[in-house]
């Protein structure tokens, strides 16, 4: 992989230095106070290399990713802004990329976005002017070719983001998921964060194919994990969240646990350790503790992946 640093992002420096990275996910609030995200930032500081800031996840209106990211950056964690194609056309997206970079934000994760039927405005009109792969191309073109998506030159101060994408080893058709990841890398994605992994056997098969094709040498792949608070959360993930599979044995283990929350942390820690020891081709972990951010340091320490010296 090229060692030139294209963005000035710390996450990029860490990954390019060969060290494994740890990232977490923070969901902005459904109000205009930054207090909660700042509190979560304080909890995570020192434990993660960067934190993703979701873009109205589940199509629920929340503080914008870019504004929340600024609060997080000002409190000592490097943000990864998430940008979905659901709410903005190519004009708005490029405008936001210019604005985000002007604020000092350096990492971007490109996604399609959850469909609006899942959120609190199901009668909204979606945009999807471009899709996630075209969004990767757009961001890359602005940085490397100094061009707007239309081909018009950006005369100066082009935004230089470190560009990420997501992969879902658990979506169907399974055989196509590695192809699609390769397509994202071909489009310009430099780091990949996967959907939450519970089915370790399927993830291992996915990564084996990635390694066979050398994709782990063309992009940094971070394994996504999410601790489950209890059997109900597990069942919800299993049945209601698109693109996630949760093996029944995990649901049962949480159901039988004396303290499901403790068990949830143990399971997540075990998953990280298992992946670290048995699955090749990874460059780190992405911990998505949705509305349970306070547990992240414990998981990181327990799994022995603390980035702090």
């Amino acid at each position: 992989m090229k060692m030139t640093i294209s963005s000035g992002s710390n996450l990029e420096k860490i990954l390019k230095s060969g060290r494994h990275a740890v990232t977490a996910e923070l969901g902005p609030p459904k109000h205009s106070s930054p207090d909660n995200i700042i509190r979560h930032t304080n909890t995570l500081r020192g434990y993660v290399d960067a934190a993703n800031i979701t873009d109205c996840q589940s199509a629920v209106v929340r503080m914008s990713s870019i504004s929340a990211a600024l609060h997080i950056m000002n409190n000592g964690i490097e943000p990864v802004i998430q940008i979905t194609c659901r709410d903005r056309n190519r004009i708005a997206i490029q405008s936001d990329l210019l604005g985000a970079y002007s604020l000092g934000l350096k990492n971007v994760l490109c996604l399609s976005g959850d469909h609006q039927v899942f959120g609190n405005h199901p009668t909204a009109k979606n945009v999807y002017d471009i899709d996630s792969i075209q969004l990767i191309q757009l961001t890359r073109r602005m940085r490397d070719e100094k061009l707007f998506f239309s081909g018009e030159p950006i005369k100066e101060h082009e935004p230089k983001f470190f560009i990420g994408a997501v992969a879902n080893p658990f979506a169907d058709p399974f055989e196509y998921q590695v192809d699609r990841l390769e397509k994202k890398i071909n489009a310009g994605a430099e780091f990949i964060q996967t959907q939450c992994i519970y089915d370790l056997e399927r993830f291992a098969r996915f990564m084996d194919t990635c390694v066979e094709r050398g994709l782990h040498e063309r992009a940094y792949i971070l394994a996504g994990v999410t601790p489950l608070r209890g059997p109900r959360a597990a069942k919800f993930m299993q049945t209601c969240v698109p693109g996630i599979t949760v093996p029944e044995e995990i649901v049962q283990r949480l159901a039988k646990a004396a303290d499901p929350k403790v068990e949830g942390v143990i399971i997540c820690t075990e998953q990280i350790k298992y992946i670290k020891e048995n699955i090749k081709g990874l460059s780190g972990f992405h911990i998505m503790a949705i509305s349970w951010e306070e547990v992240v340091p414990e998981i990181i320490k327990g799994a022995g992946i603390c980035p702090c010296p």
Binding site: V117, F170, D172, G243
Partner: peptide
């Protein structure tokens, strides 16, 4: 495709069915 994705499928498809329904 409810998202009109031109480079699909998106990550929400499972068992051949769309995430929205």
């Amino acid at each position: 495709c409810p998202k009109s994705v031109l480079n699909g499928p998106c990550g929400g498809a499972q068992n051949g069915k769309c995430e929205i329904n």
